[in-house]
Structure formats: C-alpha cells, structure tokens
Design a protein around this nucleic acid. Structure first.
Lengths: 122, 122
DNA sequence: CATACAGTTGAACAATTGTTCATATGTGGT
DNA sequence: ACCACATATGAACAATTGTTCAACTGTATG
C-alpha cells in the first residue's frame, strides 16, 4: 500500500485547462495552485532569449535598442519578450525621453539562476 | 556609451535554430551555451504535470500506475512525461517485476524548487 | 508642423508541445 | 501456451509559443 502526503494533488484539476486563475494562498505546503504558479514561473525562464535578457540586465539597466543590438535581435522581438518579463514582474521599466530603460525587479531570480547553474555544471 | 561583460553573447547564434548541440565547457562565466542548457532545464520544469511528478517522487519512489492514479492522468501520459524527466536525468527508474519504479535522481532539483517557491511566495 | 527615432502592438506564421488513442513489448501466473 | 496486467511507443491532434512584419504611438528637434 502506498501513501503520499501530496495525495490531495488533483482534487480539482479542471482549473488547469482554463488558464488556471489561482486562489492566492499563503505559502505553506505545496498544493496544486502553487505548482501552477511554479510551472508558470519556470515556463518564463525556459526560453534562452529571456534568459539572455535577464543576464544582460543583471549587469546594468539597458534600453530596448541596446538589448536588441546586444542579443542581435529586432527591437520588436525584444519588446515582446520584455513585456512577458514585465508582466511576470521580473523586470521593471523606466522611461527617459524617447528611451525606455529596463532593469531587474527581483532579487530571487539571480539566486535561482545560480542554483540552476550549479545543477547544470554538475 | 554602454558596455556589458556579456557583450559576446551572440557571436554564434545560429546554434539556436538547429536544436543547439552544446559545446561542453567547464562552468565559469555564463556564455551562450550555458544559457541554452539553462533554458532547456527550465523548459522541463515549466510544466505542471512534470512538477507534480517531481513533487510526488520527492516523498518516495512510485511506479507509473501509482503516479497516474495520484495525478489523475492516463498511464500513457505519465509514461511520456517520465521519459522526458529521465532523458533530462532528473529521475531514474528501477524495474521490479511488471512494475517500473521511478525516483528522483538529482538533489539540486529540490533546492531549485525551494528557491523558486520562496520567489513565488514573496 | 514635419521629420526622425524609440518603442509598442496585433496579426500571421512556423515550430514546438502535451495529451489521447491504438498498438506493441514484456512480465508473472495458470 | 495462454491470459492479464504494467509500461512503452508512435502517430495524430489541438493548443501554445516565439519571431517577423507592418502599422501605430509617443517624443525630441529643426
């Protein structure tokens, strides 16, 4: 007989299909909603363009054009991805004349990247 | 004038399109190949089904049927995802009669999940 | 006001993804 | 040998994703 403290996982897994709007609960034992938030977070990190943007911004704030030149991409593509990162609250923006400067918004991201790097590098 | 120590980012970004086979380098400064590996890792974590599997296996090893019942999924779907996790070396398997038992293969994963949880929970 | 530049946006497209279904493989029991 | 069960596999499908392109907003400058 097997038993597992996370047995209550999918008491309500219809939520997944309709773009799961989470019930915001305080953080304790990982329930299914937390896992949805977690996977959404990892989904955002799971793109090399976005990781490049985050790495670049870890150094200093940069505007869209600079980032586009740095990563050798169109401004449009960069802008699209910055929007994703901003919606996820991973970056913030500051307008200065014609330019919009982006910078990191969350100190956790760096820590997570470091842990993941340890994993990759064995 | 802007400058950034990661300026050499995309000296060779054709590698991205053809499913980037990485040049395995020892871990030091994050170069573009490391970022590809990182994003591949996050991609795998970026699915709630796979996260559920990992969480469940953190407790104890389980076989495919048990996991399927636990997550309320078909055995086929579970098997497919376990294969993804195994290919990524995040789980390992052990055959016992008709059953195949899966367990976590990497201690880093738990640490990363914890860091990410801290981030989610603010 | 006109122009040039910086950034945003939405539609379109190809590419990738996760699940389902049907089928195959392998194991133990009778 | 046969059957029942556990798992794996591949094709098919819908859904999601990232980039490109063209058009748009906004700002500075002449």
């Amino acid at each position: 007989m097997w038993y597992n403290k996370y047995m209550e996982f999918n008491t309500d897994n219809k939520m997944k299909t309709d773009k799961h709007q989470y019930i915001t609960t305080k953080c304790q034992l990982p329930d299914i909603n937390i896992l949805y938030e977690l996977s959404d977070f990892f989904k955002i990190m799971g793109d090399s363009t976005r990781l490049q943007l985050l790495w670049a911004l870890e150094e200093s704030e940069l505007c869209v054009g600079e980032l586009a030149e740095l990563l050798n991409m169109t401004k449009s593509a960069v802008s699209h991805q910055l929007k994703v990162l901003k919606t996820a609250k991973l970056v913030r923006s500051r307008k200065d004349g014609k330019n919009v400067y982006y910078s990191l918004n969350d100190h956790h991201v760096k820590l997570i990247l470091e842990k993941a790097l340890e994993h990759i590098c064995e």
